[in-house]
Nucleic acid binder design. Structure first.
Lengths: 192, 192
DNA sequence: ACCTGAACACCGTTCAAGT
DNA sequence: ACCTGAACACCGTTCAAGT
C-alpha cells in the first residue's frame, strides 16, 4: 500500500527532511561521493532517520537534482515571451549548460548514483521535460525547427553537456556542441 | 620512476593478467557492479595479484573497454574504402550504436567507474579518436560536412548514445539521434 | 509516530608470509 | 619476482531501544 505520498508528516520530521536536502546539496556539489553517513551527521540526524527519508543514495540524489533543476526549467516561459522561438531555445540551452557546469559535482553524483540507464531520463516527466516541450512546440509552430522532434530526442542530443569538464574552456566546447545540435534541429526546417 | 610500461612480465603473470581481463569482460557486461573480489576469484587469482595489475576499478574498466572498442574503430578504414565519406560516417555511427547497446553493462561500468568528467574522454587518444579523425577528415575534404569539427566535438555530439536504454526500441531512438547529429554536421556544408 | 546509534554485512585495499 | 589470502578500514543498511 505504501501511502500515495500524502500523510502530513510531523513538523520535526519535515524539518529533518529539509535539513538533509540542504546539506546534501552543498556536500554533493563539493564531492559526488560524500558518504551518506557524513551527510546524516552534518544534518544532525541519526542514520535511521536518514534512511527513513531516502532509502538509498539514488533517491537522495534524484530529489536534490529535481529541486535544483526546477530553476532552469522556470526560465523557459520567460525567454519565449521576450525572444524569437529559436533564440529562446538556444539561450535556454546556454543557461542549462551554465547551470550544469556550476553544479558539476551534482551531475557526477547523478551519473554515479543512477545505476542503470538514463541519468537524465530518470527525472521522468519533470519540469525539464515540460520546459523542453514548451520550447520545441513554439519552434515547430514558428517553422524554425523541423517537425516531429520529441523532448526525449532533444535531451539525448544535448547529453554531451554532462561530459564536459567544468574546468578549462567549457564555454567554447559547450557552445560548439549546442550550435551543432541547433543546426541539426533546424536542418531543412519545414520538411519532413 | 615506475617503469614506462616495458618490463617483459613473467609468463605466469601475463596469463594471470589476461585471465582477469577475460573474466572482467564477461562479468562486467552482465552486471556493472560485480565486486572486484568476485572477479579475482573467478579468474583464480588472489586479491593481491588483482591489485598488482589493476590498482582500482577504473583502471580495470578502462582497460576492458579499450580492448573492446578497438574492434569498432577498426571498421572505419574499411567503410571509407567502399562508400562515400558521408555514408561511411553515418554507417560507422550505426555500428557504434549497435556495439554500445550490446555492451550496455560495460557502458554502465564505465559511467560508474569514471568518477570525474568524461567517461569517453578518459579513453584519451585511443583507437576511437583515430577512427573519428579519419572519418571527419575524409568528409571535410569531400565537402560533405562543415569544416572545423574536431573529434572531441563529435564524441560530445553522440554522447547521448550511452544514455539509451538497450531494452525496448533503441534502434529508433538511436537512429533519430544520429540523424540529427549528421544533419548538424552537414548544416551549410562548405561555409564557415 | 518518529528518532537514535550501535551492530552487521559487504567491498576495496594492504601486507606479511610463502614459493 | 610474483603470488596468496587473512586482516583492516570504510560505507551502506538494519533494528532494538528510546522519547
Amino acid at each position: 500500500m505504501q501511502q500515495g505520498n500524502e500523510a502530513p508528516l510531523r513538523s520535526d520530521a519535515q524539518r529533518n527532511r529539509e535539513r538533509i536536502l540542504e546539506v546534501a546539496l552543498t556536500e554533493l556539489t563539493r564531492s559526488a561521493c560524500t558518504p551518506l553517513s557524513a551527510i546524516a551527521k552534518k544534518a544532525g540526524v541519526g542514520q535511521g532517520t536518514f534512511y527513513r527519508n531516502f532509502p538509498n543514495r539514488e533517491a537522495l540524489v534524484l530529489e536534490v537534482y529535481r529541486h535544483e533543476v526546477q530553476q532552469v526549467a522556470d526560465a523557459a516561459p520567460q525567454l519565449l515571451e521576450t525572444r524569437a522561438p529559436d533564440q529562446a531555445l538556444r539561450e535556454w540551452m546556454d543557461r542549462l549548460a551554465q547551470y550544469a557546469m556550476a553544479k558539476a559535482g551534482l551531475a557526477d553524483a547523478m551519473r554515479q548514483a543512477t545505476s542503470a540507464h538514463g541519468s537524465l531520463a530518470k527525472l521522468g516527466h519533470g519540469p525539464v521535460t515540460s520546459a523542453v516541450t514548451l520550447l520545441l512546440k513554439a519552434n515547430e509552430e514558428a517553422g524554425t525547427i523541423r517537425p516531429g522532434v520529441t523532448p526525449d530526442d532533444f535531451v539525448l542530443a544535448i547529453a554531451g553537456l554532462w561530459q564536459i569538464d567544468p574546468h578549462g574552456d567549457w564555454q567554447a566546447r559547450a557552445g560548439r556542441l549546442l550550435d551543432l545540435v541547433m543546426d541539426g534541429l533546424r536542418a531543412g526546417a519545414p520538411g519532413a
